[in-house]
Design a protein around this nucleic acid. Structure first.
Lengths: 198, 198
DNA sequence: GAGCCTTCTTGATTACGATCAAGAGGTCTC
DNA sequence: GAGACCTCTTGATCGTAATCAAGAAGGCTC
């Protein structure tokens, strides 16, 4: 079994949890989905280009940010089992104002916007799955603003940690700080205090 | 033509912009959608209850918030032509951690979760519309975190104003401040400066 | 229109995170 | 293993928004 076929298994199980998948669909799907590997530091999407693919992360971790390289404003982190797109750019197939970069060596299964649309057109039952998945991501899309609301660094950290402890532990502090809207110095000091008090 | 029928027109035009609507669907739809009026200050959803309805706002303006009444953390404002639900509570039909209140006298067309699910089940073509609408709202769901990222009050205000100038002008300052994550005193001073400098 | 309540404004003080600066520790490459 | 680079840490200073306090203005109710 190829690496791709092995990875596809997980994704198919995921999709099958929404509706029955037909034989024809699975064949079409196999042909449209591509396996990609991005080494740490490499880009899945560059600012100024169109987000043409939706990526299902099989292993690894990616960061999405806007702003300049030294003044990053991190929008989110995604890890294995999650989907990565730059929303505006993907849905509208317009130029992206942000970038997506691999924070670890990352393996993804990718499908292009065009191919996905074609799948929807040819397999209408997929619409329901698409709606449910979109609803799921939409539902969870407030986390960032929930985190940023408090001004106190500790409260921000705690709010994020509550939902994404795993991410917090595997991400460089500097990048985490750029997500929390804190200076890396502030986060460093905060974590020192937290370590001390337990 | 009843007030409801008049309002339905807009909503149907909106839905028809996604796909052809069948006669049977329109009949079902009419029966499931209810016209509701909420006076200023009245609640569309109370914390601790389940968000059973999706509301299409025909006229007026509503605010969604979490936290206590005196320490509001406003999540969003919606106005005529927009949909209002408390996401987690509606999609999962679970207890809401937040409330939705009318900031003006507000007229809405409402459909229950159960009825909506039934519409999806009986009219599969609606799934595509549902997906597109969800994608649209999902796409725009970063505004709040984009606004909250900067610490400078002015930058927060400007970021919000750029996308929701109409809302800014019709909302009480105090409520706007609770959205921007600022004290009302700070917002008051900021606006005074802005007025002066032009 | 009087009285009450809420929103908005202005002032003074204080707390704390950003910023600037520099050094320590870790990791990768040749 | 030397050197370079990057992340993380610690220190000192400064700017500014939160906080506390109180008064002004605008809306409602009776």
């Amino acid at each position: 079994m190829s690496a791709k076929q092995q990875m596809m298994g997980l994704l198919k199980t995921y999709l099958a949890s929404f509706t029955m998948l037909t034989e024809e669909f699975l064949n079409d799907f196999d042909q449209k989905v591509k396996l990609n590997v991005f080494e740490k530091g490499h880009y899945l999407l560059r600012k100024g280009t169109v987000c043409e693919h939706m990526h299902y992360i099989e292993t690894g971790c990616v960061q999405c940010y806007i702003g300049t390289k030294d003044r990053k404003e991190t929008l989110w982190f995604m890890r294995e089992g999650e989907l990565a797109i730059f929303k505006n750019s993907f849905y509208d197939q317009s130029e992206s104002v942000g970038s997506i970069v691999a924070l670890e060596d990352t393996r993804v299964l990718s499908i292009s916007y065009k191919d996905l649309e074609q799948l929807y057109a040819e397999h209408p039952f997929l619409e329901r799955t698409g709606r449910k998945i979109t609803e799921y991501y939409h539902k969870n899309s407030d986390l960032k603003s929930y985190v940023l609301y408090p001004k106190k660094p500790e409260e921000r950290f705690d709010r994020y940690y509550q939902y994404r402890a795993d991410i917090v532990h595997r991400i460089p502090q500097k990048q985490l700080a750029s997500f929390l809207g804190l200076r890396e110095e502030t986060l460093s000091r905060l974590l020192r205090e937290k370590r001390k008090n337990q």
